[in-house]
Structures are given as structure tokens and as C-alpha cells.
């Protein structure tokens, strides 16, 4: 058998040296799966059986199901680059049968700037010093046995 470290040389097919592999995000739905949903006929269970449970439903309106998916890849020196982003909207009428199926692509989305303000939470903001040295007492020294059992650990063991 060959000694050369072949196992370490995965011939990545097609992906160039600089290319970052694409990554599937969210709940992708193929064309022919969508084709099988017929508005007016398929019910909620048909859709769930066919596509699986939705990524999200309307916040306060359970009659809309969203299947959100995308493809991202890593970009040098920046955060994730989104190549593809699509949303499948399935709208049900009150009776629970599919009323309408819509697809939204990346072009429908708007470039939104996140508001930088944050609601303060009452968490105990640890002082810098406490964070720096707060860990010394608590973190077990690697290789020490499991933590002392029972309360007797701290008090003096012997007494006449």
C-alpha cells in the first residue's frame, strides 16, 4: 500500500485553490417539490409531509408558512457572503388548504441597516478584574480529581 499521505490530499474537485466551499443554509426546497403543491387542494399536512416543517410561520398569523434558505461562502476579511437567498411563502385559507404559493429571491429583499441600540439587560456586568482573576479559584487544575463531594471539604477534618 502506498506510503504517500494520500489520505491528506483530498483532490477537491473543481474548487480552485482560493475558492471557499459553498454552504447550504436554511431549508432548501426544489422546483419539482413546489410543483407538487396545488393551491386549493393540498392541505397543511400534505405540505408538511412534502416539504417538512417550515423554517418559520407568521409571527402572529399562523396561516402563512415560510421556507427560507440560502447559500453562503466565506469572503476574505469580511463576514459571510450571501450568494443566494430565497423564501417560499405558502399561504393557507382559514380552512387549512393552500391558497397561494409565492417565491421570493434575493432581489426582493432590502438592504437593512441594523439599529445599533441595544436593550440593557440587568446581567451582573463583571468588573474587569473579576473577569481576569475570577476564574482562578473555580477552574479545576487540569488532571485534578472530580470536585470534592459533600460539604465537609472546607472545614477542618480532625478534632479530638
Amino acid at each position: 500500500c502506498s506510503y504517500l499521505p494520500t489520505a491528506a490530499v483530498p483532490g477537491v474537485p473543481g474548487a480552485g485553490l482560493f475558492e471557499s466551499p459553498r454552504q447550504f443554509r436554511g431549508h432548501a426546497v426544489t422546483e419539482e417539490q413546489v410543483g407538487q403543491i396545488t393551491p386549493g387542494v393540498s392541505s397543511r399536512d400534505d405540505v408538511e409531509a412534502l416539504l417538512g416543517s417550515p423554517s418559520a410561520s407568521g409571527t402572529f398569523d399562523p396561516s402563512e408558512w415560510y421556507y427560507i434558505s440560502g447559500i453562503t461562502h466565506q469572503r476574505p476579511a469580511r463576514n459571510l457572503g450571501v450568494i443566494e437567498q430565497n423564501v417560499l411563502v405558502v399561504r393557507f385559507d382559514p380552512g387549512g388548504t393552500v391558497q397561494e404559493v409565492r417565491r421570493l429571491g434575493m432581489e426582493d429583499g432590502r438592504e437593512i441597516q441594523m439599529v445599533s441600540r441595544v436593550t440593557p439587560s440587568p446581567g451582573t456586568e463583571r468588573s474587569v478584574l473579576q473577569q481576569l482573576f475570577g476564574n482562578i479559584g473555580r477552574v479545576g487544575v487540569p488532571g485534578s480529581q472530580q470536585p470534592q463531594r459533600g460539604p465537609g471539604a472546607a472545614s477542618p477534618g480532625s478534632g479530638q
Binding site: L17, F18, S20, Q74, P76, A77
Partner: peptide, 12 residues
């Protein structure tokens, strides 16, 4: 210094 990854194996 500044550095980034193209992918899991290539870094600049």
C-alpha cells in the same frame, strides 16, 4: 498584522 482564510486550508 492582519490575516484571513480563503477556506479551511488556505490562509493569507
Amino acid at each position: 498584522r492582519a490575516g484571513y482564510e480563503f477556506n479551511e486550508r488556505l490562509r493569507q
